[in-house]
Every structure is written in structure tokens, then in C-alpha cells.
Amino acid sequence: MAETTHGADHAVESAPGMPQLDFSTFPNQIFWLLVTLVVLYFILNRIALPRIASVLADRQGAIQRDLDSAEQMKRQALEAEEAYNKALADARAQAQDIVGEAKADIQKDLDKAILKADAEIAAKAAESEKAIKEIRDSSAKSIQEVANAAAADIVKAMMPGSGDAKTIKAAVAARLKG
């Protein structure tokens, strides 16, 4: 109890009501506040703020640089893709050309071969025809001879002594023709 009374007395004697309105302490507060503000201002203005500003500027620069390089890389990638596409198209066109050329060559060779084969076939056919004709001719002659002989034999058998070989031959030839 004694202590609380003492506390109350203390409060009453040193600060009646609000200590905020105790004008005797104002010079002290104002003096120390001004000292604090000046010191704080110098610390901040000389050291802290320039440092933070430079760090922020550096970071901004770094970010900008990174963005720029990313942009450039993107452009390079696009260029590379374009080049690749162009190369691909070129290669395709070239392949097309080669295929066309090869086709033309083959066609030419083929045509030549066909022509040659045709000529050979024609030659062979002519030869065969000639052979067939010879065979036919020779066979026709043989038939005439056989017919002559047969006719002479028949005439001799039917009417012996009549007719000579010449007449028979003429008659057979007329018959074969007709």
C-alpha cells in the first residue's frame, strides 16, 4: 500500500495530468528530436538510400538484360527454324528434280530399248515370214510333184498308155490353181 501511495505521489508531483503537456520537457524533446532527425537523415541520405537505389537499378538492369537476351535468343531460334525449313524445302525440291531426271533418263533408256526390241522383233518376224514363205513354196512344189505323181499313177492305172506326163502336169497345175 505504501508503495502504491508513493507511486501516486510521484505521478502527481512530476506530471500533473498528461506528461505530454508538461512544457518544461519540451526543449529537451525538441533538441533530441532534431539531433535524431539530422543523424538519421545523414545516415539514410548518404549511405542507405543510394545503396538501395543502386541495387534496385542493378536489378532492373539485370532483368532488362536477361529479357533482351531472351528476346535475341528467341529471334535466333526463329531464324534457325526458318533456315531449317528453307533447307528442307530446298532438299525436297532437289530430290524432286533428281527423281524427275532419273525418271526422264529411265524413260529415254526404256524408249531406246523398246525401239531396239521392236526393230529386232520386226527383223525376226521378217526372217520368219521369209522362212515360212520358203517352206510354203517348197511344200506347194512338193504337193504339185506328189499330185503329179499320184495323177500319173491314177491315169496309168485307169487308162494305160493314154496321156503323157506333160498333159497330166498341166492338168494338175490348172487344178491346183483353180
Binding site: S24, T25, N28, Q29, I30, W32, V39, L40, I43, A48
Partner: peptide, 25 residues
């Protein structure tokens, strides 16, 4: 309390300056 007397005002303002320095410097 004279105008130059170091008081609890002085102490806590000094602490504020120290904290500001620690944080910002």
C-alpha cells in the same frame, strides 16, 4: 531536465536510429 539532459527520449530515439541503421545500412 535541461534541454541537453539525456533522457528516455534520447535513449529511444537513439534506439530508433540504431534499428534504422541495422535494417537499412
Amino acid at each position: 531536465i535541461h534541454w541537453y539532459t539525456p533522457t528516455n527520449v534520447t535513449l529511444w530515439m537513439l534506439i530508433a536510429v540504431v534499428v534504422a541503421t541495422v535494417l537499412l545500412v
